[in-house]
Write a protein that binds this DNA or RNA. Structure first.
Lengths: 254, 254
DNA sequence: CGAGGGGTTGATCTCCTTCAACGGAGGTGG
DNA sequence: CCACCTCCGTTGAAGGAGATCAACCCCTCG
């Protein structure tokens, strides 16, 4: 595969690798993506990369660190609706919907690359396969969100927290950023709580319970899954919704 | 606009009208969509239109009635992650992700039209504007899901139920299927509960409370919003996330 | 050394669930 | 035309998961 010859640490190459998990692309299509020109930037933890209501003209690729999509309530409560890891184009959707009603906020210190909508649109208009790859990416994002609607609507706190760790672990492994059983997870317990729809106090107690049951540890922003199967069972975790294809697994037909 | 000359009651015309709320399309692009050949079918309430895990080769357009996307838990609990009304291509996303992990189920009796993925893919490959319109549609769906993650994670029962009615009301109005203050909502209280992440017992009490506060009535599958502003305030409803453009409002630039 | 962010603990409260029963409307068969 | 059944809605009482409130601790960094 062409991408294997590329430098995987280049942000755009990470993005391409992630696309290729889900969508086959020809060598020339891959080249077209790799030739995108990005503009680098850094953000400290807690800073907004994109603010709610802001009209954007470029999309943001996470190069290093972790970011999240936040929904803010009138009383100040927050809900994280997505975690973005290195290689994620966190608002690729802004190409077709340039004004979002939520923020993209740095969870840890992050470095990012910005890519002009104009260039991305040109790519889409000239390469139907890339258009479908981007579309598929948005559908996969929706699939994750739907799963979280189910988790928040119908699962208790331990299952939600367990699901969070399963999901992020598997995504980190797929992105070659760690192992599902041991990966950096640079968020605070409060941010975990904002994702799980819980208070930080209760999240803390749930983490202790999961630790006590020898399922996982979470210290110093590092997750260690002690019992993957047990954790997946607690979470009712079924990875199909992530729509990840693995090297060696049959490719998704176009 | 070309579509105004079309028969709005034809299912595919309803679908096109909905696309045009969000995406400008030329006359020839509109013609291409209208010339799609659909295969009709009917489903009784509670029947699966698409079952979880099923690989599909056609997408389903709701022509009449209401359907929902269901996520099912191991213990039998259900969560509705989306409502689909007439004119919604409820699994347009299946064109790029043909195997879903949830079901599309008829809420009321519904009639639908099926469209082959092959034809839809051809449309997308030949018309970049249609590709972007479909992509935008999936992004809008994701936007609704993200909003529901926020609602389920951080809002109490009355706010959730209120939000449900605001959302469906506005969508019905946009689809010319009713008025935001009075519309058919052919679901049971149990299905409302499955969407709001509540029990049907509590949903019943919440509906009584909202009635008591003169915000809405819901009887015989018909919603009457008595105080739209009050309901929207209770729900913290801000329609931006629906990504609906209205006739007369400025068009979204391509 | 002081300040502040993040983590931990305990006590209390409350929103929603659970369980159990009943009522009413509509459809169906005798 | 009545009897019955089933689905849906309604009500009450009790219980529990998680929120809230209020400390306190530890570590890092200026």
């Amino acid at each position: 595969m062409f991408v294997n010859r590329a430098d995987h640490t280049a942000p755009i190459a990470r993005f391409l690798a992630r696309l290729l998990h889900r969508s086959p692309l020809t060598e020339s299509e891959q080249r077209a993506i790799l030739s995108l020109k990005g503009e680098p930037a850094r953000f400290a933890a807690h800073r907004d990369i994109v603010s709610p209501g802001q009209k954007v003209e470029r999309a943001c690729l996470i190069a290093e660190g972790m970011a999240g999509r936040f929904d803010q309530m009138a009383n100040g409560q927050r809900q994280i609706t997505a975690f973005h890891i290195a290689g994620d184009m966190s608002d690729l959707h802004s190409v077709v919907v340039p004004t979002a009603s939520w923020s993209i906020t740095a969870l840890s210190d992050v470095s990012v690359q910005f890519y002009d909508h104009k260039d991305l649109r040109e790519l889409v208009d000239n390469h139907p396969a890339i258009a479908k790859a981007f579309w598929r990416d948005s559908v996969a994002e929706g699939s994750c969100l739907a799963k979280w609607v189910g988790n928040l609507g119908r699962k208790n706190a331990p299952a939600r927290v367990a699901h969070l760790f399963c999901e992020v672990g598997l995504r980190m492994e797929a992105a070659a950023l760690g192992d599902r059983r041991s990966f950096a997870f640079p968020v605070t317990q409060e941010q975990l709580a904002d994702a799980a729809g819980l208070t930080s106090v209760h999240t803390n107690r749930v983490l202790q319970e999961l630790r006590g049951r020898n399922l996982l540890t979470f210290r110093a922003r590092k997750a260690e899954i002690l019992d993957w199967d047990g954790l997946a069972q607690e979470a009712e975790f079924d990875p199909g919704y992530l729509i990840l294809r693995w090297p060696g697994e049959p490719e998704q037909p176009d």
